[in-house]
Design a protein around this nucleic acid. Structure first.
Lengths: 157, 157
DNA sequence: GCCATTTTGTTTCCTAGTCAACAAAAATTG
DNA sequence: CAATTTTTGTTGACTAGGAAACAAAATGGC
């Protein structure tokens, strides 16, 4: 197999596995919320003035899907919406107290995962780490250029 | 942000982007087949005696989902099923001629993607490459151990 | 200012995938 | 061997998300 394909295949498999394993813990601690919902809560917690469009672009999902999801989060009172003076179109989100609580649980879980996998990451040298990050970023920019060239509009975050 | 989280975030974003971009080309050339179906065709093409269970384990999907998918592939006559003497339970799949054709288109597309992104990968030295692969494999084994310890049954391929 | 275009968000219809319950065959236990 | 347990595959009910059509607001060109 080409090294390129090999690397992508290995990474993909690893990510599937990681997501699959973490899902169990997540479902345990965050019952009643889908991974996507939790992900959205995390995003809204981190970014001021989040709205449907920004979430959609960041998650590579349709606005349709996000609109439905945020509706649920509003009903569950995990987020609340607000608008700005002089703009009746855009609707922004922020976390409620309950949303913050969920976000906290999620962060704690992440910390747990981090500790669980720490040993693996400790073996990486700074050079290796920086090399990998810069490769990813280079690849990402390359794809951005491709996307732009294809005339597809993406605006990845 | 922790380097560990940073790396995971960057990879996740990159993969979303890559999948999203490739989807357009895929949809163009392989209209009528979902990415999952194409993925299954690829798998069946590569592995002799594929069955529902093996596909499910490899894709981290439920047997239920795979069962429905293979049913569709059978109806479209892209795959065919067979059994072995003395085993009335397990049902295996192989590609039909049509399935092979689809697989070929898919491979050609992959080749196209490979060329498109070649420049990015060319800059990686052998040491870097090997280091990354071995890191992924180490991480994968670490997760396997975790999965085993959790008593979840996985048998990742 | 006014009209066309773009942006933002929602809704309806549809599909892919999960979960749970199941049947049939195989494997295990005694 | 018989009885229990596990494995394999399928089905039906349900949900998350995509596609398309849409309304309302904002923006841009003139």
């Amino acid at each position: 197999m080409e090294r390129q394909e090999q690397l992508i295949a290995v990474v993909r498999d690893l990510f599937n596995k990681l997501a699959w394993l973490n899902k169990f813990k997540m479902e345990d601690s965050l019952k009643g919320h889908t991974p996507s919902e939790v992900h959205a809560i995390e995003y809204i917690g981190k970014h001021a003035d989040s709205n449907v469009t920004k979430l959609a672009e960041s998650f590579y999902m349709t606005r349709s899907a996000i609109s439905k999801m945020t509706k649920k989060l509003l009903e569950k009172e995990l987020i609340e919406s607000y608008q700005k003076d002089g703009n009746k179109k855009e609707i922004y989100f922020r976390l409620t107290e309950q949303g913050n609580a969920v976000n906290q649980i999620h962060e704690d879980l992440h910390e747990e995962f981090r500790k669980r996998d720490q040993a693996v990451f400790e073996q990486i040298t700074k050079e290796q780490f920086d090399g990998m990050i810069s490769l990813m970023e280079r690849y990402s920019r390359h794809l951005d250029a491709e996307i732009k060239q294809q005339g597809i509009d993406a605006k990845s975050e």
